[in-house]
Design a protein around this nucleic acid. Structure first.
Lengths: 202, 202
DNA sequence: GGAAAAGCGTGTTTTTTAGCATACCTTTGT
DNA sequence: ACAAAGGTATGCTAAAAAACACGCTTTTCC
């Protein structure tokens, strides 16, 4: 009945679809994906978490089991706070209550936008958008243009709703077109304007 | 600074993407769609509202303008409650606060599931799912199998993430396969089991 | 009541995307 | 150091979905 902090190694699962939510999680250090298993082993990343953000509490508040899973993109440090503690505080702390309302409301808006982006844009648009999203969310290295997250092609695909081969193919195309430069998992944004345009028009 | 009730006619817009959210809405009677404009005039219905449900408050809580629009599927009666009233109550009423947390948390879970269903299932799966969804959400007529909502083919398409012609074609196929019977906009579920299977396997 | 518009049905073509197969290159673990 | 496994690259084929074209029917509105 008290908070603990533990580390998760790269690719370690933090919780799985169907698990009962007992804790509020707070990412102290690292990078985490929230994903959903789809048809034929294909996963869809629905959200990503950066430090310092809370996650894993939605299911608890709606009294359901998790409908998504969470895993560490890279070695991560996470604070684990029993939801029972939270419930008792929320009940008499309007401030905390508003905090969660706000977080949930923002996440819902993002989720709705994401639904449309993933369903209506074409492959190039979706991938361009993912690259920009990763930049906005996790930032870049000191050079100002290399994404500071290094994802496998499969994770890029799962983020962008496409097959791994299409992610590989389209990344190569973007590199040919000098919108990005790729070196293994390192993605450098060369022409952000073009990328933005691609993400908008498809 | 007080609640009003007004009616909206069929297809009338209740609020639009980009509008500033000032009110909490409550659908008293009728049926409402929450949708998002996509690429090339294609809309995606992200949620539907039935009586008696609250809607239109998400954007207010997250202090954004609306990212979705709302319109009446059919003639509807709606209570309009200024958000300013709500804010003042939420601040000191833990019960109401929990109500909104719960609603938002549930909606977010649904939205995540919807994202994956819309992106990964094939046309047949998506349409079958929409039909079952409409049954669960709005129910059936006295005969126990005719959906009590009558949508245009275009709305069926917008609900299922497909073009209007594909919605028309696939509905005809389902009718040929005796899973449903169609008579204009009337959809009768003949073989729910088959429909459910179609929605699962694609 | 009749013209115009909106909605529906069906067939064909084209584009987009998934699915495979194969080769090569990097890690990982022993 | 080496085998095995996992990840990346590329080409080809098949399937799915969109786009288009056209005719027909129903609604809407002067």
């Amino acid at each position: 009945m008290h908070m603990v902090v533990r580390t998760f190694e790269k690719n370690e699962i933090i919780y799985s679809e169907g698990d009962e939510p007992k804790n509020l999680l707070c990412l102290i250090k690292g990078k985490v994906k929230i994903y959903k298993e789809g048809v034929g082993g294909r996963n869809q990343i629905v959200r990503v978490v950066r430090p310092v953000e809370y996650f894993g509490y939605r299911a608890a508040f709606s009294e359901e089991n998790y409908v998504t899973g969470a895993a560490a993109f890279e070695a991560s440090t996470i604070a684990i706070i029993p939801m029972r503690l939270i419930y008792s505080i929320v009940d008499r702390n309007a401030h905390l209550c508003n905090f969660f309302i706000r977080k949930l409301a923002k996440a819902l808006g993002k989720s709705d936008e994401r639904t449309v982006n993933l369903t209506q844009k074409h492959i190039r648009g979706r991938l361009a958008e993912s690259i920009l999203f990763l930049k906005e969310n996790y930032g870049v290295e000191e050079d100002g243009c290399t994404l500071s997250i290094y994802l496998s092609r499969e994770d890029m695909a799962n983020l962008s709703n496409m097959t791994t081969s299409n992610a590989i193919r389209t990344l190569s195309l973007f590199a040919q077109e000098k919108m990005i430069a790729i070196d293994g998992r390192k993605i450098k944004i060369i022409n952000e304007e073009a990328l933005r345009k691609t993400s908008e028009i498809g």
